[in-house]
């Protein structure tokens, strides 16, 4: 069985052409990253705003959990048959697909951004204000860099969820790696299905690792604790020895 899958994957024919693996892979990335871009545009500003002002934090906690329970696949099919005909032809399937991927990704980014800003050391925030930073400067120069680790892990999990779920858009006639799964099923070609599944898995793992590397370099070393020089404990000024007779 495994051999069959390997054979399917290593067949050069399967990689080329408009419905080859390379093309499907690119489509998959295209759907995923367009959705992720929208997720960032929505999630980060709103998360920053809520974290900075503290307004609406209760609503966020509640709705993030409810959104997690929403079945993405069902929502996609519902939107396509319920609203697809109201969209321009090119968007009948693409619109709902991107929409559900965005809905899927926003909660992780938004709630992590919010939590990241909330978790900034209140003393640092107070000092920043006290030194005369404007609200915007406090946000961009202090809160954002300190919230970055949490924001990035939110982006990372949103990205993984989107990559995984972008597979289902093939069910509504779109492309992407999910095509191999859907087509394999209807053609009773298990090797093709499993090959597609493995490709999605490898893509997810590879992007996750790449992201981990980025995360390392983007976050300030003062926050991650990976310092260049070893930390020293010795106090610079030696304690003044008490004169005594």
């Amino acid at each position: 069985m495994i051999n069959g899958i390997i054979e399917w994957l290593s067949d050069g024919e399967h990689w080329s052409g408009p419905d080859g693996i390379t093309a499907r892979l690119l489509e998959h990335l295209q759907y995923s990253f367009s959705a992720l871009a929208v997720v960032l545009l929505i999630g980060i500003p709103i998360g920053l705003y809520i974290g900075h002002t503290g307004k609406g934090s209760v609503a966020i906690a509640g709705s993030a959990n409810a959104l997690r329970a929403l079945p993405t696949f069902g929502l996609l099919l519902y939107l396509v048959i319920g609203y697809g005909d109201k969209l321009p032809t090119d968007w009948i399937y693409l619109g709902p697909s991107l929409f559900v991927l965005v809905v899927l990704g926003v909660p992780a980014v938004l709630s992590n951004t919010y939590a990241g800003v909330q978790n900034v050391d209140p003393a640092a925030r107070d000092a920043a204000k006290g030194m005369g930073m404007t609200g915007m400067q406090v946000l961009l120069r202090v809160e954002l860099p300190n919230a970055l680790p949490l924001i990035l892990s939110g982006v990372r999990s949103a990205m993984l969820q989107i990559i995984a779920t972008a597979t289902v858009v093939a069910y509504v006639t779109l492309g992407g790696l999910g095509r191999f799964i859907i087509d394999g099923l209807s053609q009773q070609d298990y090797f093709q299905m499993a090959g597609g599944a493995i490709l999605v898995a490898v893509l997810a793992v590879a992007l996750d690792l790449a992201f981990a590397v980025i995360q390392r370099y983007v976050v300030s070393r003062g926050i991650t604790g990976r310092y260049a020089a070893p930390a020293a404990n010795a106090d610079v000024v030696a304690a003044e020895s008490k004169a005594s007779v």
Binding site: L160, I163, A164, T165, T167, V168, I181, M193, A194, G196, A197, I198, V200, A201, A204, V205, D208
Partner: peptide
């Protein structure tokens, strides 16, 4: 990290 659907199929 491995998508669940992929896992079902593999």
């Amino acid at each position: 990290t491995v998508p669940s659907l992929a896992l079902f199929i593999i």
